[in-house]
Design a protein around this nucleic acid. Sequence first.
DNA 1: CGACGGGACGC
DNA 2: CGACGGGACGC
Length: 300
Amino acid sequence: MQCQLWMGSLEPNMTESFIMAAFHRMGQRPLAVKVMRNKFTGEPAGYAFVHFQTDEESVDAMHKLNGKPIPGTFPVVRFRLNTASREARSNMQHEREFSVWVGDLSPDVDDYSLYRVFASKYSSIKTAKVILDSSGYTKGYGFVRFGNEEEQRNALYAMNGYTGLGSKPLKICTAVPKPKTIVTTQSTTTTTTTSASYNSGTEYNQYYDPSAYWQNYSAWSGYYGQGDQSAAAAAQAVAVAEPVQTAAAVKAQNDDLALVDHKTSLDIDQLNQEFLDPELSLWDSLEASQWFPHEVVEAH
DNA sequence: CGACGGGACGC
DNA sequence: CGACGGGACGC
């Protein structure tokens, strides 16, 4: 991946030297930082490329820093890091992705500890990510991505119930890849639209594995939640690819489409619950008013 | 283990 | 329990 990371969530006042200093304070030593700008207006584009000496170094930095507060920011801005390179991005769009969903993560588990545990057993591991909410607190689950299907399958049972990471046994499920930004296929044909629907079609089969149905149910809903047009387009793509499909199967697809809004209503309920949760409100106000990292204090 | 509806593109 | 990632490619 050409020894570099993509870094997002940048604010306009974050210069290259500021970012470089932030990495230094976190114990990382990038070779260079390049903040990207809008080609036409010259305004900061909100992201940068951070170069390292080796791929290993960049991956290590990504897992150690991602989601952590950027020193010197207030209100807190967190590192948003991802693997970069033109090559990696184009590969990602065409290669199948082998990931597992990891649940029951206790609050002390971060990207790096998740990565280390899996990397010690699975050499093809690419990335590990713990999903955080907007305040930076873990949602208790994450994704581990592998370079091949064998290791993904092995991890599926070998790591299920694993103890030794955080305080709870891990729960492992097959991850349902989240589709990329999907544009409605009814708009004018563009290359973006074409590749999006193609990807949806190629990965469709696993969603119809009956044994995985319940396991993937929630992810399913999110998949279709992207928009009815894309779902219909994907279903059509499969129907074309598999002429043996029966009317019953098509009916099943249509029924599944109806699940979308069930999930949507659950989300709303959940959001409301979080909004009304007094503990979360307390945290939010703490974060907004007085909660900032040691680095800021030390700097003054 | 397990569930069942909200709302209107862009040519 | 739960189902991601805002944003993306110059030198």
